[in-house]
């Protein structure tokens, strides 16, 4: 079904080129024209554990001092204009065509890394209350777009958000930590007798990685059910967390 839709959408884009979200030039791409896509602020050298932008490709001081829960992090762009605008459009203004663009770019990036691909994708869940307001979970939509391209399933049963946390933007790290405590819980109960084991290698997917706190807490919940290797994938990474 998603493949069928992908095919129809492809033909539709050829017949009716869509205007670029940034410059209104029409192209057969889903959201941005090629030029605008190339102009997006790529995340260059960064810490492989937390994706903090660095001048060298090396583990950052923070991760040396206190290693994060996840094993590695991967992000596409700096969280700065125009990516920040696009992410807001994706999150709040229903521009879900952007997931196609970001997924395409993300797959290209993955191909460069040559690491074994995860067994499944898990999107950072939204609390039901928030989900109801928004009508969809942008992280899940992004994960789905990746899933069709990579042929890796998305698992919905591994992680739940049990606490309705307030919006994190504008809060200090301390306050964020306070808020996020026990925000996630896995409803999954491993049962070796029934062959019901947690997957060994998981990629956690979200739209933006700011302090990495959300990922950390979610990863912890996954570690608790026995996940071995956790990667963290996001579209954009902020660079202010130093």
């Amino acid at each position: 079904m998603p493949r069928c839709r992908q095919y129809i959408t492809q033909r539709l884009r050829q017949a009716f080129p869509a205007p670029c979200l940034l410059c209104h030039v029409r192209s057969i791409n889903s959201a941005l024209c090629d030029d605008c896509t190339d102009d997006l602020p790529q995340l260059g050298l960064c810490c492989p554990h937390c994706a903090t932008p660095l001048n060298l490709q090396t583990t950052c001081g923070a991760c040396l001092a206190k290693p994060p829960v996840q094993d590695s992090s991967l992000s596409l762009y700096h969280y700065s204009p125009p990516v920040s605008t696009l992410i807001i459009a994706l999150k709040h203004h229903d521009q879900r065509t952007l997931t196609d663009l970001f997924a395409d770019e993300f797959v290209k990036r993955l191909a460069q890394n040559k690491v074994p691909s995860p067994d499944c994708l898990v999107a950072i869940p939204l609390h039901p209350e928030r989900l109801r307001q928004r009508g969809y979970n942008q992280a899940l939509e992004f994960a789905r777009a990746l899933s069709t391209r990579l042929d890796i399933p998305v698992r919905l049963d591994l992680l739940d958000r049990v606490k309705n946390t307030p919006i994190q933007a504008g809060l200090s790290l301390k306050q964020r930590q306070q808020n996020m405590r026990h925000a996630f819980k896995s409803p999954f109960v491993p049962n070796a007798m029934r062959g019901k084991n947690a997957p060994q290698h998981i990629a956690l997917v979200d739209d933006v990685m700011t302090t990495g706190l959300t990922f950390n807490i979610a990863a912890k919940a996954l570690r608790d059910i026995g996940v071995n290797h956790i990667e963290v994938w996001s579209i954009a990474r902020t660079s202010n967390a130093k």
């Binding site: 959408t9 539709l12 009716f16 869509a18 029409r26 889903s30 065509t97 997931t99 196609d100």
Partner: peptide, 12 residues
């Protein structure tokens, strides 16, 4: 367009 995640130009 919403269903197929396509954005039409208004003139289209």
């Amino acid at each position: 367009a919403i269903l197929l995640r396509h954005r039409f130009a208004t003139r289209d």
